[in-house]
Design a binder for these strands. Sequence first.
DNA 1: ATCGGGTCGAG
DNA 2: CACTCGACCCGAT
Length: 921
Amino acid sequence: MKLFLIDAYALIYRSYYAFIKIPRINSKGVNTSAIFGFINSLEDILKRENPTHIAVAFDPHGPTFRHEAYEQYKAQREETPEVIKQSVPIIKNIIKAYNIPILEVAGYEADDVIGTIAKQAAKEDFDVYMMTPDKDYGQLVEDHIFMYRPRFGGDYEIMGVPEVLNKYGLTSTEQVIDLLGLMGDTSDNIPGCPGVGEKTAQKLLTEFGTIENLLANTDKLKGAQRIKVEKNAEQIRFSKFLATIKTDVPIQFDANLYIREKPDVEQLTKIYTELEFRTFINKLSEEVKKPLPKQPLQGDLFGLFEVETTSASKYSTLADLRSISHKYYIADTEQKQNDLASFLENQEFFAFDTETDNIDPLNAGLVGMSFAVKENEAWYVPVPENSIEADKVVSRFSPALENEKIQKIGQNIKFDILVLRKYRVKVAGPLFDTMIAHYLLNPELRHGMDYLAETYLKYKPIPIEELIGTRGKKQLSMRDVPLSKISEYAAEDADVTLKLRNYFAPELKKEGIDSLFYDIEMPLIYVLTDMEATGVTIDTIALKQSSEELSIVMVALEKEIYEMAGKKFNINSARQVGEILFDHLKIEEKAKKTKTGNYSTSEDILEKMRGKHPIIGKLLEYRGLKKLLSTYIDALPELIRPTSGKIHTSYNQAVTATGRLSSTNPNLQNIPVRDELGREIRKAFTADNTNCIFFSADYSQIELRIMAHLSNDQHMIDAFCSGADIHAATAAKIYGVPLEEVTSDMRRKAKTANFGIIYGISIFGLSERLNIPRAEAKELIDGYFQSYPRIREYMDESIANAKEKGYVETIFKRKRFLPDITSHNAIVRGYAERNAINAPIQGSAADIIKVAMIRIFNRFEKEKLKSKMILQVHDELNFNVYKDELETVKQIVLEEMEGVIKLQVPLIADCGEGTNWLEAH
DNA sequence: ATCGGGTCGAG
DNA sequence: CACTCGACCCGAT
């Protein structure tokens, strides 16, 4: 099959200028050069090439994405000649009369549309010919895609891959972009690199392959050329962007719409008569007799039922094409809902999304649900506000949602599972969360659906503001959005989610992270959902009492501080504190400043000044109390849900760069423990009731053990295998003394060194941290590497590995990309190097505890325990345990935590229990 | 109202 | 110039 795609403006301009010296003017004085030339070319193709499929692409009226990025784009090109402006509508009418579809997409130029359609059609057994004289189309040429360039004298040049490569001396057609990016293109106003023409550009590309590679290796260039390239690096990059034809325009190739049809002779005769194109009128009578090219069979679809029309001309603009390109339905009757539900029950997967009246899932009421099974097709099910009615509707979908065989696809699906839980639906079966898929593919990017849709689908979903108004102004509840709007929005969400899954699933496989995704992250969703829904009990009364006591102390402290300072100020303002200390009281001459120029008053700095003035101690005390009071003591009771009487944190599975979870609303992963007052807060986290006990288990030195395993350092492995206190053992080695003679100071320093190593610490950093001279810090580190010789090698290997591959990975193949590892800026590079060391360690620990959580959860379910996992704090798991289950729980938890993976060192978990979190530790 | 900076809680 | 986070407060916009 043969598809012709015509760049209309390119041909129109060419025709116009071809006749510029002797324009064709008819008796009414109309300049018909452009129209005549265009029809001539069109007729020529139809006759010569007899395409089976055809379409014509126009540039849209408004600005395109290129204009948005570069206002000068095509600015220097003179205004479109008046004649052409007048000719375009006539030409469009002629094309319509030919029954040829017109493609026009707002925001994209014709070449982007042609590029997109060409790539799609080439995958469907078409030979695609792009008719245009513009050389930038060369970048699109591939196996079944050709350029069809008109040449002067009425013949054509067909350029396939070898022709393009030969003509420009390139090794791949994509290099056409680089070529244009370097040499520029005056007709498109692409600046390129000044002083670089076609020849130089070819030479540079032969050597470097791509612009990126060239710019990364300018040090290999000589003299003036190097300066030229380096000076214009940004412009070159931008030129490449401008020269790049997009192949992901939001348009779907549908062969049926492009099928060649007979022209509407009557209509054409009318137009040609008006234009006085007698020769064309004469040709028309012959044309109509000619048979159309044979269309290959389209499968069963057309045999089965009568298709009302396959006429492409019916859909002559993209807007029309798009309006039929998706079908969103509303299932608002019992009949429709039952039909939809049983349809879903027979699928292997479906995407779904919930619309709610609250962004907090535990507090949200269902407004509707949407489902998608096939791209561009989705259903919206409105859910009534009345809970009895709502249950009725929702329950129709329970069999589908609870079916263990059907994969559920969602964006942040934990939210939807939590919402449905309140409607007694227990979502089950394999999951596919597009947010988490993207998190694994690109941990440090954003993972919002709108962002994903725009980036990977080139599609901008309806913004939520369009439904409920912009934030700041009074917002509508989802409940008040009219059905016609919310259904489109919701159905689109399910549709987009499905499309994202189709995009990400192969990517996960390609990156080798599919097992991490399907075997760890997806099952973990059910675990987190359960933990969040369960919640943790807080002793409010104890907290209230602490609050009152502390408030009294704080008021007194405040008064003392004002007296010492000699005036009132805001103690909570770091800036004002700095001014009081350094300008007003002049406690210290040399003061460290923050990057914004204020005095730094952070804890470590104040701690060093403690002896200089009594106000320092008071300030530190005030700050400590204020933090505890506002962040924990006063805040936590506010977060208790009346529905459960407990606190329910939310775990975010797609935030950290290393693979850890994070906790919000509230953050239960930073509850104080280190000092005495903070511990009071831990005490307030209790078991649910007197039949229960708080049980806590945590990995012993998991990161250091992973370090020992990954580095293969026999000394560290031996230390762990002997069961010794690792910090004391390290101290003994560094200081060369027997284990019994290690002092607490030696152990403290060795412990700091152990942690520092994991973070890739420097001599300077260690000396700061331990408050010791640099020389001593150096000795410590030297001693460390002598004690554990393979550690240093491992660190160097990690960095080299990151440089070579661009990323590092954990034991379970979780990746972290480190593009800065090759930076010429030592600070930036240093940061990346420390990440190269730290990420595999911290990330592997995160992977391990995730696996443990899944296994523990599954065993609890299998053995039908009432006890629940309630908190995860990176290397620690906490449980509300029924007393009669304590031994079972302890056994399961330790067994699963320690048995996740066999490392070269034992994986050890310690545990404890008590009435509250503090006691359990 | 919103956002960035500073500080500090945790592993 | 030690890695990973989130919450609170201030103060500028």
